[in-house]
C-alpha cells in the first residue's frame, strides 16, 4: 500500500495523518520546529523561507484557533495567506469540494491547509491536486489532526526530553477525537512504551487496543504513575444522546482534578488541545496549575506549523 503522504523519494509530500510516517520524519519536524521557536521569540518574527508562496487556508468547518495559528505560522515564513471560510460560501452555492480546490489551484496555490468535518477529506484533496501542490490536514472529521499531535510531541519532548521511558495517558472522548488518533500514532511511532486511553465505554471506538494502547475505564487506575496526561475536549453535543448522562457525572469520573492528578508522577505534565471546557473535562485548578503546559503548547504550535510548511515547501 503506497503511503499517500510520501513522494517517490520517500519525502513528505503532504501531511495528512501521523499514521504510517517513519520516526525520522516526525523527528525532523520536531527538530526544525526547535529552530523556529527562536524566531517566534525575536523582535522581528519573520523569516523569508516561503516568500512568494501562496497558501490557502481551506476551512470547510468553522475554526478560529487552528486557522489563526496556521495563518500566523505562514506569515512568519513570509508566505501570502488567503483564508477561505468555505462553510459559509461556495459549498452553500452547491459547488463540490473538489471544484473549489480546482478553482483555487488555478490561482496557482502552493499549499492547501484543509479542515473538514468528514474523515478522509484531506486525503481526497491530496489525491486530486497537481503534484507540486502540498496539502496539510488541519483536522478531518474524527480521523486525524497531525499538526496538533506534532505540537503535543514537541511539548512532551521539551519537558520530558526522551520518549523511550514515558507513560502517557489520553483521557476523554477517544471515539470522536481526531486529536487522540493522531496522538496515539505519533506516540507509538516515537517509541513511547506505554500509551493508555481512559474513557467510558461509550466514548471508545471498537478494537482501539489494535492501535497499540492500553484501555482503562477507571481514571484513578489509568493515571497511576503516568508522566504525561493528554486531556481531550468533550463536545457539548455528546451530552444530548445516550452516550453520557450528564456533564456532572462525566466530570466526577473523567474530569481531571488535583486529587486525580496526584496519582500521576509528581512531575507529570498536563496538556489539552483547547478550547477547554473548564469544570467538564478539566478543573480550573489543574488547567491553571503548575503542572499545566497548555499555554506553552499554543506557543509551540506556531513553530511546529512553521516547520511542517517549511519542510513541505522544500520537498
Amino acid at each position: 500500500m503506497n503511503n499517500p503522504q510520501l513522494n517517490k523519494n520517500g519525502k513528505l509530500q503532504h501531511l495528512l495523518t501521523t499514521e504510517g510516517l517513519p520516526a525520522p520524519i516526525l523527528l525532523k519536524i520536531l527538530d526544525t520546529a526547535e529552530s523556529f521557536v527562536g524566531v517566534t521569540q525575536r523582535d522581528i518574527k519573520k523569516v523569508p523561507l516561503l516568500r512568494g508562496k501562496a497558501i490557502f487556508n481551506l476551512f470547510f468547518e468553522p475554526s478560529t484557533r487552528t486557522r489563526t495559528t496556521f495563518e500566523i505560522a505562514a506569515k512568519r515564513l513570509s508566505a501570502d495567506v488567503v483564508n477561505l471560510n468555505i462553510a459559509a460560501s461556495s459549498q452553500s452555492k452547491g459547488e463540490t469540494m473538489l471544484d473549489t480546490v480546482n478553482n483555487l489551484s488555478a490561482m496557482n496555490a502552493d499549499m492547501f491547509i484543509v479542515r473538514h468535518s468528514q474523515s478522509g477529506a484531506a486525503h481526497l484533496i491530496a489525491r486530486h491536486v497537481r503534484p507540486e501542490i502540498h496539502v496539510i490536514n488541519a483536522g478531518d472529521g474524527r480521523h486525524a489532526h497531525p499538526t496538533q499531535a506534532l505540537l503535543d510531541m514537541f511539548t512532551i519532548r521539551r519537558y520530558k526530553k526522551d520518549f523511550h521511558n514515558l507513560r502517557v495517558a489520553i483521557v476523554g472522548d477517544i471515539l470522536h477525537s481526531r486529536v487522540a488518533r493522531s496522538q496515539i500514532h505519533a506516540l507509538t511511532t516515537l517509541g513511547v512504551p506505554e500509551v493508555r486511553v481512559i474513557s467510558p465505554k461509550t466514548l471508545l471506538p471498537a478494537k482501539v487496543e489494535r492501535l497499540g494502547v492500553h484501555v482503562y475505564h477507571d481514571m484513578e487506575q489509568g493515571l497511576k504513575d503516568v508522566d504525561v496526561v493528554l486531556m481531550l475536549r468533550l463536545q457539548n453535543e455528546r451530552m444530548l444522546g445516550a452516550r453520557l448522562p450528564s456533564a456532572e457525572e462525566y466530570f466526577k469520573h473523567y474530569g481531571l482534578t488535583q486529587e486525580k492528578l496526584a496519582l500521576a508522577k509528581h512531575d507529570a505534565i498536563v496538556m489539552h488541545p483547547g478550547p477547554m471546557n473548564r469544570g467538564i473535562e478539566i478543573d480550573s485548578a489543574v488547567a491553571d496549575g503548575k503542572q499545566s503546559v497548555i499555554l506553552p503548547q499554543v506557543t509551540f504550535g506556531i513553530a511546529v506549523r512553521m516547520a511542517v510548511m517549511a519542510i513541505l515547501a522544500g520537498n
Binding site: 478522509g120 474524527r142 480521523h143 478494537k207 489494535r210 492501535l211
Partner: peptide, 8 residues
Amino acid sequence: EVATRLGL
C-alpha cells in the same frame, strides 16, 4: 479496526 483507525 479500520473504522477506528480512519475515524469513520
